[in-house]
Design a protein around this nucleic acid. Structure first.
Lengths: 337, 337
DNA sequence: TTGTATGCGTTATCAG
DNA sequence: CTGATAACGCATACAA
């Protein structure tokens, strides 16, 4: 226990140089694998590095290069399941490539808060930023901002233009709405996400597109806040209207809350009303009544974001519109898993 | 757009010194509010800082102090709801105190992987570490390791000894089991968490304690993996036995999966069998059948961890066993929210 | 191919 | 109370 307290001096580049019988400069060259180094010299240096278990000091390197090999994650999402999954995979992917990850949450989505967060990441001299900024205005502020480092934005607009990246929400929403139409529904409501959220807009558009294409009546969407609690209250409210037979909720949480609300209001789901959701969160397959939903591959999305970001950081050719953007998949829950 | 590309040189401590007409050393003193500084001089320096919008360079500071004002989060949990909530609040709390946060996930819980993660955080020279290491062996490895910086471990053993911190899982499990007993159940199964998880052990102990105290028969617990999918299969298996009338699942996900399994096996929940869970995840209040569960305040736990860690980092008196460790609360779902 | 010298922006150790 | 001066560990022109 005493020994663990003792902070042995960490070997520096000069210790390595001394042991290898070269100048510290040569060691530096080996580290950054500079072309002009005699193989034999390189070997000696590498051996010395191994013997001393030398590890470059990140702070010193950052000071002189003003780059930190760190990726900043800017998250404007509370604790949603999707973004959280993406963040975890972002971290893993970045670590694999030798990058550290630092995260900053946005407590509120005002331009000031966003600016603060970006400046904070700037002070930490991150090499690039992955933003999970699903709100329209956060996204716009970000877009108009001189960030100074490469920035990839996740889960924003539909499609990908090199800065933004997401699965095709419109297509997913359309698919799940079409599913309702196929099984015979003609009066379908939409419980949408918050006004400001890009995904909410996309899913609503998919809903509207599907209905128009099928020449079915559309209803003004109800604006929710993604939470199950809101879904519950919406269910109780909607119970007074009986002009519909199905609801497409913009995410699974609201869908589940909605079914609860209907239940408490005496509406039989799915006999009287069908409900579908979006996201395929882990319990979606297990709730009652069964929930048809759209599966999103959040982890892949995160990995892909890191790929693009690192390419940009390294100045490589960015595969503008890679095929690796995960496709959405309808998961129907009529059969149990 | 052109202007945003231009990387204006960031003002350094010397620029401030020049403008204030003092030495750069004096500026440094102001920055670290050294006691012996004439108020007037301080004012001049502070003005210069404001004018230039000077921000200390973190890398330089880290280089010379070998401390980074960064907290490392070591997470050995996939994407569980609880830990994730805690992490978010850890980040926020740390930022408020002027600390950055860097996270590293453990892909596997081998001693090597843990060592790698700790070394990685060491290289980043974190000031302290918050470990979310709910597995027994991760916890043990950590405990026996010379980490070199203060370490607070979250959600581990029951109770808190300054290094570890968690809500009292045993008491929570006992409470929810007693709830089942009170409503008349005498044959109560336990669907436990994975063998290696400390919380799984604690919740099991609470279950056993409650049963023994009530002189009721105990059953060998079934070992689950926290997932709803496992709960589902367990439900189908258990349907063959009919020697119980209630199940305490060690978390909500398994509880919900379990109910699904029972349902598919033709068992009527809650008429024939009651199910209770643990965690009170956001949808717990909305599933059908209603789920009684134990509410955990993960965010508070995270904040508290940061508090303790920072106290330790700053060498303050650590409030060994503060009252701020969140209490568990039984949430009964008979009434809808 | 390798070595020397210099600087990155701070803090710390001395003087004064 | 303040100011020189020297590290911290590395990378990068410039020389050799």
């Amino acid at each position: 226990m005493a020994a663990s307290r003792e902070r042995a001096r960490v070997p520096s580049i000069r210790d390595v140089a001394r042991l290898a019988g070269v100048s510290h400069q040569t060691v530096s060259r080996v580290l950054n694998d500079h072309p002009s180094i005699r193989p034999e010299t390189r070997k000696r240096v590498e051996d010395a590095i191994a013997v001393l278990d030398y590890k470059p000091n990140l702070a010193a390197r950052a000071l002189v290069t003003s780059r930190t090999h760190t990726i900043g994650v800017l998250s404007a999402t509370i604790g949603e399941f999707g973004p959280t999954s993406s963040i975890a995979s972002i971290e893993d992917a970045a670590r694999v490539e030798g990058y550290s990850v630092t995260t900053v949450n946005l407590p509120e989505t005002t331009p000031e808060a966003i600016g603060d967060a970006i400046r904070q990441l700037g002070r930490e001299q991150v090499s690039g930023i992955v933003a999970l900024a699903p709100q329209v205005r956060v996204f716009n502020v970000l877009r108009g901002m001189a960030v100074g480092v490469p920035l990839v934005s996740l889960q924003t607009a539909s499609g990908s233009d090199g800065y933004t990246l997401s699965a095709d929400q419109v297509a997913g929403a359309r698919a799940v709405t079409e599913h309702l139409i196929e099984v015979g529904h003609t009066d379908i409501l939409h419980l949408a996400g918050p006004q400001d959220w890009i995904e909410a807009e996309s899913r609503m558009r998919g809903y509207l597109d599907a209905l128009r294409e099928a020449d079915l009546p559309t209803f003004p969407p109800i604006r929710g806040d993604w939470t199950a609690d809101f879904g519950y209250f919406a269910g109780q409210e909607l119970a007074r209207r009986r002009d519909f037979t199905a609801v497409f909720a913009a995410n699974d949480l609201m869908a589940i809350g909605l079914m609860h609300g209907f239940r408490d209001a005496g509406i039989d789901v799915p006999r009287e009303v069908s409900v579908v959701g979006f996201d395929d969160i882990p319990i979606a397959a297990h709730v009652w009544p069964p929930l048809t939903t759209v599966h999103q591959d959040f982890p892949t999305l995160g990995r892909r974001a890191v790929e693009i970001l690192l390419a940009e950081i390294r100045g490589e050719q960015t595969p503008k519109f890679g095929p690796a953007v995960p496709q959405l998949r309808l998961r129907s829950s009529s059969a149990s898993r």
